[in-house]
Write a protein that binds this DNA or RNA. Structure first.
Lengths: 344, 344
DNA sequence: CTGAAAGCGCTAACAC
DNA sequence: GTGTTAGCGCTTTCAG
């Protein structure tokens, strides 16, 4: 600690200038192989460690990106962050992590910090609460590379990585039909959220494609919770002709559906089929194991980082190549016991 | 973007020097209230944003800490990070997140990066693979504040935040006894890991305290997995006098125990009691709901950050106050159906 | 291929 | 209470 090693120290030892040392350390093309070897050897020997702050300050590139997620406690986001950090690290980038706790205020604070830390780009998943997007628009104006993942906003025209909700819902519904269920109901989520709207549409279209129409009373408007799954079942079972299968907008809702059906002593999948969405970690451990649609979280993180990288490069080269608008990941059907088909 | 605002710009506008502006912005005591007001007003108006890189480079404090976890995908660590980021953010600190993927190589790489980024301190949970601790020892030597959480190493004498595994195990075992189970077995984890050893001891001592001795054949050496829970049950049920309750070293093992018992059509908690450790998110959703011991993950993150802060402050003040060695969190018993007691 | 010199934006002695 | 001056450690023109 007494005295940290800098390029000056190396330069002195080797009778070179700091400029040459710096270039040698950065593998500059116009430095002789011999000098590079010498410098790098010396650096190792003296336990030199580049001061990233100084280097970033001077060069204008921090090799750091900012990541905003609603909460690290949510499985889904932990998993995406896992993907992001993994590729970032492999590409020599560090990530600064911030949680919005679903509030715009913390989102703004995070962006402030990122700007202040001169990050090279930002990856974000929009907070539920956020309706005013000026802080994100500001980033676009300032030409700071930005990519949304999962929670996005179409109007902003910000590149994004999402899973194909429509398709996932379509697959789930089709799957139930294929397994012999005749009357498929949907426990929907808040329709002001695009992903949930897409899932409803995927459900409707899958029914149409199979010569069934989506009956209004087979759609229950829930609020994404175990409770709403239970309430949905209560509602559906009162119908003159109740459904025989449920496609829930996500796994916690599906869990509520299952719990309620079990309380009423119904048999799953013999009497009712159930499928959810998200492929939560508990899916395979409950009884019956819950079928679901996987959202490729880790892959989402990786793609998001790669997309951001592209944008950073385009920015650097000042070229005007049109950047990709959107990456849509394929949802993956996870077939488990809860939708295995009716007993004859 | 054309021209970023610096303190020079503010200084020029206000006919002051950069030094005064800098001081005003940092709320320096010897600057007149009026000047401060003026400067801060102007800064806001010009949309000035402090360049953290320059400020850190100069001051030697980055207000950034490094965090190493095995994987963000693991619920437990996501939760701890949630706690860390939360307090860090409230204290004006940013966190750089790295995953070790349970390897020493990535641990070392993370530390290199942190040092290079001049973080003010490091929070880490040791990778499973790590047996050579020189990279951590190096930090101590260089006097970089370091705090371990959850996965720690006693020999290193590095301050740490952990949950009281012994006590958690004691509580769990005692709970089973209180609920009328007579012959308690333990599915243990690898004994080279301190936490698991502590849990075994807690189990043994709880039995002793209740005038029972821990019989060797009631302890199964597992490897922390669903599989090992199943194997344990297979083993235990072959005994002449099988146990009537199982304390599993963690929840996945407990899950295996439950699955196996259910496959064999045994009734839980009527015929066998089961309790796990970790309070995983699936616990309350499986059937029967799994009793467990909560490890206070979020709190662990918060305490770890606070402890690190203390160390950073002690470091700054160059005082020689002895720092805290260890914070031990209270485990919390989560009583659910799986251990509700035998039917008479 | 290497050197000289300037400066990224900020803070901190030291003056007065 | 404010200004002067120096410099954190690095990269980057511009020379030669």
């Amino acid at each position: 600690m007494s005295h940290r090693i800098t390029i000056h120290d190396i330069a002195r030892e080797l009778n070179l200038t700091t400029a040459t040392v710096s270039r040698a350390l950065n593998d500059h093309p116009r430095i002789s192989t011999e000098t590079k070897r010498l410098v790098q050897e010396k650096a190792r020997q003296m336990k030199y460690r580049r001061n990233k702050l100084a280097s970033s300050l001077r060069s204008g590139k921090s090799h750091t990106i900012g990541v905003i997620i609603p909460s690290a406690q949510m499985n889904f986001f932990g998993s995406v962050v896992h993907g992001i950090e993994n590729v970032a690290s492999n590409n020599g980038y560090s990530i600064i992590l911030y949680q919005s706790e679903e509030t715009s205020a913390l989102e703004k604070k995070a962006i402030e910090t990122f700007l202040s830390a001169r990050v090279d780009g930002i990856l974000a998943s929009i907070a539920k609460e956020t309706v005013d997007f000026t802080h994100y628009v500001e980033l676009k104006k300032r030409n700071i590379p930005l990519v949304f993942f999962d929670r996005t906003n179409e109007d902003l025209k910000v590149p994004a990585v999402v899973v194909d909700d429509y398709k996932g819902a379509y697959l789930a519904t089709e799957h139930l039909l294929k397994n012999g269920y005749k009357r498929i109901a949907h426990v929907a989520g808040p329709q002001h959220i695009k992903g949930f709207r897409d899932r409803l549409n995927g459900y409707k279209d899958a029914l149409k494609a199979n010569q069934k129409k989506a009956e209004k009373n087979y759609i229950y408007q829930g609020n994404v919770s175990i409770e709403s799954g239970k309430e949905a079942v209560d509602y559906f079972l009162k119908l003159v002709e109740p459904p025989d299968a449920f496609f829930a907008v996500e796994d916690y809702t599906a869990l509520g559906v299952i719990k309620c059906l079990k309380e009423r002593k119904f048999k799953i999948p013999d009497e009712f089929g159930v499928i959810g969405f998200a492929n939560e970690s508990f899916d395979e451990h409950i009884t019956p194991a819950l079928s679901s649609v996987d959202q490729q979280t880790v892959q989402m993180g990786k793609e998001a980082f790669n997309l951001l990288m592209e944008m950073i490069k385009i920015n650097d080269s000042k070229s005007t190549v049109k950047e990709k608008e959107k990456i849509v990941l394929e949802p993956i059907l996870c077939y488990r016991e809860s939708s295995a088909g009716k007993k004859a």
